[in-house]
Design a protein around this nucleic acid. Structure first.
Lengths: 192, 192, 192, 192
DNA sequence: TATGAATGAGGCTTCATTCAT
DNA sequence: CATGAATGAAGCCTCATTCAT
């Protein structure tokens, strides 16, 4: 009957949940559906997760942590702040495409405390990462002087927009180049 | 029992729906709740709207149209493309704050065809508006040369991000100045 | 569809609940069953009762109040304290037979606060009633001197025993005469 | 992993079951809980007991037999019928306090045949015990003449009441003295 | 038009029981 | 003997929708 270890089962449920939640969002996803996708019974899900909310929060935590780590890793290898920012944007777009529906979407409307905490921690990390990039940029003279905190917040907002745009319009194909180009150069003509 | 006219009833339902959907999102809102808020019976709602989806789509249409019109109006009065863009951003932030939960949120996960159409039309209008601003900008030499379509799409994405940021973090206080500043000038230092 | 007024529906649900709970106890009774017995849908039950516990507590309250009132009424008509006590015993036995399973049984194991309150109030009333009977008895010289409070508590316990005995053994046919005989006269031979 | 013998395991399950069932009653007790309390796996329980009902019936049998034996033992040492009855009452109160929830409670509503048999046998024994006491009492002239069977049944009912009163109201502190006093002497004033 | 009681499908969750290891 | 993951039936409850009045 149980051909898997507990850990394997938990992971396969988590994977299934990522898939289903990604496609349908929180409220449209049934536990039964996740169970089926994971190849386990309904009751089986409740061995590993206290309830639907717990499953969602765990998944969110897992995903955001993974995303956070990878982004940090990628940024580390970049030579300059512009490249770093580009990398962050690219990373965001890539994940958005992959985990359509989860990264930002829903969970919000439930106001699950467990989710809010997870998200808050994540956004804080991201903000720090971007603040660092901006600081490095201004320190090296590549970026102009600006209020680092404000700029970072705005960038975060912009990133969210790219991500969310992908979510609501799957045909939208934002390129990281185009996005970073505007963020870096702005629209205004530079005085020569 | 002072009866309302049909139109009045429909409108009060719509208003109630805007309020409740804004606060709780689609799936967490019950028809009963909307009815109560509108001071009408449950059955009453179904006289004016085919079903919950219809109510939502109607509301969305109403709201987005209103938003679209006002934005266009506001932009018309602006002297330059930078001011116009600023106005659009300010408009987005203002509406986001007011109709928390509706403008972007949910409805998405349902993939209601009726909503998709409404949204598609709306985003098209917005894109055109922004494309026009950019065109005017480049034509007048204030904006640098760029792929108008691409730039507009990116701007739209950015706007969404600002809006969405407000939705998920009610403490976030994006100022239109900060936002437009980055979009217009970018982060990179201008060569002097 | 709805041939009944709200009040009628609520009452028929209550009646059905009394019947089913009486027969099967709390945990073995399903809401569906009560609904069916009441000739209403499952959802219909939830129009009138917040949940299963509420239904049970309401029913308990209704039944105990009814019992309390009738007992008081009956006692009022009795000429002496011995007759009064007899009447109380008879009343208890009669109700026990009719509402097998409810009066005392279950609900207890759930520890529903709502039920506890209802019961506490009921037992207090009954205790007072019996205390009064005993007081009258001793005052008139028919009952011997005793600690009224203690005696009343013991009598209450005894009553519970008769009731409960009926519940667990439907073949047991306690007669009010036999019961009151022992309570009044005791087992010991009277010294002559 | 120091393994227990089968007998030890079975006993520890039974003890655990007594504890948990006593506290929560039948339907509110889960097999998992009993297993945990016994320090054994869920499956382990099913090695020694066919199912939950079997566990309950076994426990009931064990408990009632133990109770029966001890009562008989205690009664044997008593000098007179009044003392004997007092001892029986004290015994009942003591056990009721200890095995709150089991002796009488639940199981009833399930109507488990296995439990009914166990109980029937128990009550028969108790009735005989009490009948004997009464017989001895009347034979010795200490108790007045009465229908032994009827009196015994009434006494049994009364005992149940004391027990049950303790179960539903843990603050109730019935003293065996008070209880036996009424049973022996009754409420009516003795003619002198 | 308006009401609101009624419906019933369907979601979440629990738990006695089984069985591969 | 023992384990504990897995099963799946069944219970409680919600809520969009209908319809007799």
């Amino acid at each position: 009957m149980n051909r898997r270890t507990g850990k394997e089962s938990k992971e396969s449920i988590l994977e299934a949940a990522i898939k289903v939640f990604s496609e349908k969002g929180y409220s449209q996803t049934t536990v039964r559906e996740v169970a089926k996708e994971a190849g386990i019974s309904v009751g089986g899900v409740y061995i590993y997760f206290k309830n639907k909310e717990d499953l969602y929060a765990t998944l969110l935590n897992y995903l955001l942590k993974d995303f956070s780590d990878r982004t940090k890793e990628t940024v580390k290898d970049m030579s300059g702040p512009a490249d770093a920012l580009y990398a962050v944007i690219a990373m965001n777009l890539k994940y958005a495409r992959r985990y359509k529906g989860i990264i930002i979407a829903e969970g919000r409307d439930r106001g699950f405390k467990s989710c809010l905490d997870v998200k808050k921690r994540f956004f804080k990390k991201q903000r720090r990462l971007i603040e660092d990039i901006i600081k490095t940029g201004t320190a090296s003279g590549k970026f102009k002087e600006c209020n680092v905190k404000t700029a970072a917040r705005v960038i975060i907002g912009i990133l969210r927009g790219f991500v969310f745009s992908l979510l609501i319009d799957s045909t939208a194909l934002y390129s990281a180049e185009d996005c970073s180009n505007i963020i870096l150069n702005g629209l205004l003509r530079r005085k020569e």
